[in-house]
Design a protein around this nucleic acid. Structure first.
Lengths: 162, 162
DNA sequence: GGAATCGTTTGCCATTTGGCAAAAAGCGGT
DNA sequence: ACCGCTTTTTGCCAAATGGCAAACGATTCC
């Protein structure tokens, strides 16, 4: 069990991610800095979802992204040993995890892809569909950086929608 | 072994995808139609890559995308029975496939995500990095629809770069 | 109850991209 | 070489978005 305060990191770019988390309460985001130094939010993770950089965790390579709490958070937290134990204890755990991970990855693609080809307003509407419980809990700047628009644009779009 | 001619479909939206393909020669794309009826290219797949709608194949649900040959293609092709046979015959096949699939999914996210937050020129440059062997083999309209810009814009961008 | 801090909205204008249609270029068939 | 078809480029103008700074609003801390 891990408590994170707003703005604390669960894992950081450039380090190996050695823990699998499961969000019990709060919202977390995965973000990175592009080559212009802009901070980009890649996705949000809220309650009852796994948070892990699977490439980093599995292959023990450095992660390329930060995982940051954006509200105070409570996470279940497993290290490799715990994880291995679950694997040995629970029949079918391995297969189940594979499914969950595959499903989560597919979801990430399906959520991110449409953003590329839509205009800013539609992106925001998609965001609202996908993350209905997040809008009011995180700063607008993070949402803007998720959508690939400036926060002034997002503010104006909000106004236009009502 | 399956030969597809330019423009033929490997699998179609609304149908269950019952085959796993492996591209031996040619280029294939995955595409769909958004709610404005615009055709969107989600990604390209060229030689030595797997092509499968894993959700549709695994869970026998309808696919939401088309897989279309955009050059004449040669594919290795497995149906569920073949696939099962490989699974039973080759020790470690299952684990290997899980890895390949996870890796491919991660790659899709990593390739698609950056496009959201970059301007049109940078998207095109990223495309060139990611798919260096595809530019000259597919119509510009498909690339534009992959990048989420119009083909006139892409044409102008090309000119500006040289 | 201020003061400081952080987040959001707005105004102004420059830049980017889209829409549409016409022109130009490329390509295969005869 | 010519014709018909498809793809790509270009011109013109409109619409969307960005950049920047100031104003406004909310929240926290003393």
């Amino acid at each position: 069990m891990l408590e994170l305060r707003k703005d604390q990191y669960f894992s950081e770019a450039g380090k190996i991610s050695r823990q699998v988390g499961f969000v019990l309460d709060g919202v977390v985001r995965v973000c990175y800095y592009n080559n212009k130094g802009e901070e980009i939010t890649k996705y949000f993770i809220d309650e009852n979802n796994l948070v892990v950089d699977i490439e980093s965790f599995d292959n023990e390579i450095c992660s390329s992204a930060y995982v940051q709490a954006i509200t105070d958070c409570t996470l279940l937290c497993f290290n490799k040993r715990d994880w291995q134990e679950l694997l040995n204890t629970i029949i079918g755990w391995d297969a189940m995890v594979h499914r969950m991970v595959a499903k989560a990855l597919i979801q990430k693609v399906e959520r991110r892809s449409p953003l590329v080809t839509e205009d800013a307003t539609e992106r925001y509407l998609k965001f609202l569909e996908i993350y209905p419980n997040i809008v009011n809990r995180v700063p607008l700047a993070y949402i803007a950086s998720y959508l690939g628009i400036t926060q002034s644009s997002l503010s104006r779009i909000r106004k236009n929608i009502q």
